[in-house]
């Protein structure tokens, strides 16, 4: 704790209230330099690194109280394992308390809900209902474009792996028009009597061709994406950033983002929280996947 106090004394431009909040958090969870230590030498105040939720794995462990205040793994023979008291403290610091405008009352309901002593709710790495949103850049016909890859963890006969579940690629979105019967582009209902000879007209105007597909048809960006990659028209450039969406807890959704900034409220933190009832969950997923009509 000596180092933490020393660092606080050196900060002069930070607002007092903020400082007090940090002090409370750090006092509640004493990240001393005794834990998580090993590879190097002491290079000054390291308390911020200890406080930071450094990996998504650590987010899971803190959320479930599966590691102690010093970052050491705790197992089910320990009193601290899944301790509701510790979990309440941990989950409190797992929210982005600086930039995301999270509703305080909602946050409290959420914490109360998941740490309920009679029916606690834990996060499970292999429990499904969570996925990654990866923002990338690809070269498409010589022009750099943003692509969003939705990745999910797939269980295998041995182990597991991340797979691409969906893609959202803006150039494809621009390519496919929203369907409307109002613009008079359709095959009349007696076309079959003419052996569909009028098909030639619809394929002449390539830009409108999707207007002649069924109501249910939705362009599958992932298949198109793979086709363009295989044809050599699309090539990977880089990753921009990553975030995660969690639907694993019944009636709740939260988003997990990485915050790389000064202070103690850093690393992988909850950046969005919503209470979802019934069908809202599927609607929310559609919204994230850009699948809303």
């Amino acid at each position: 704790m000596t180092f933490v106090v020393a660092s606080f004394l050196s900060i002069t431009d930070m607002h007092l209230t903020k400082l007090l909040i940090y002090a409370l958090i750090v006092t509640a969870l004493p990240f001393t330099v005794n834990g998580q230590k090993g590879v190097g030498t002491y290079l000054g105040d390291e308390s911020a690194f200890y406080a930071s939720t450094k990996q998504v794995n650590q987010f899971f462990r803190r959320f479930n109280s599966e590691e102690d205040e010093e970052g050491n793994r705790i197992y089910n023979d320990s009193k601290k394992y899944h301790s509701p008291r510790l979990r309440r403290k941990y989950i409190e610091i797992l929210f982005d308390n600086e930039t995301s405008s999270l509703d305080k009352a909602l946050k409290e309901i959420f914490i109360k809900d998941v740490t309920d002593a009679t029916a606690p709710i834990f996060l499970e790495f292999h429990g499904g209902e969570w996925f990654a949103e990866v923002h990338t850049r690809f070269n498409f016909y010589g022009k750099e474009s943003a692509a969003i890859l939705f990745m999910k963890l797939q269980e295998e006969p041995v182990g597991s792996k991340w797979v691409i579940d969906k893609v959202y690629f803006e150039p494809f979105n621009e390519l496919f028009k929203k369907k409307s019967d109002k613009d008079g582009k359709f095959l009349h209902p007696l076309s079959h009597e003419l052996d569909f000879m009028n098909l030639n007209k619809i394929f002449e105007k390539k830009e409108d061709v999707e207007l002649y597909t069924s109501r249910e048809h939705k362009p599958d960006h992932l298949s198109l994406f793979l086709l363009e990659l295989k044809k050599g028209n699309l090539s990977f450039v880089t990753i921009k950033n990553v975030k995660f969406h969690f639907f694993q807890i019944d009636n709740w959704y939260f988003e997990l983002s990485e915050f790389n900034r000064k202070g103690y409220n850093t690393g992988w933190l909850i950046s969005n929280l919503a209470k979802l009832d019934g069908e809202q969950k599927e609607s929310y997923k559609k919204f994230i996947f850009f699948e809303n009509d």
Binding site: Q36, G40, Y42, L43, Q58, G71, G159
Partner: peptide, 29 residues
């Protein structure tokens, strides 16, 4: 080049090829 006296070691997860994979986080100045 110096290393901070901190490390974080993830759980080990099994891959489809039978190997285990983990991630160690360290900080360097």
């Amino acid at each position: 080049i110096k290393w901070f006296n901190i490390q974080y070691i993830s759980d080990l997860e099994r891959q489809p090829d039978g190997r285990y994979v983990g991630v160690i986080t360290i900080y360097q100045r």
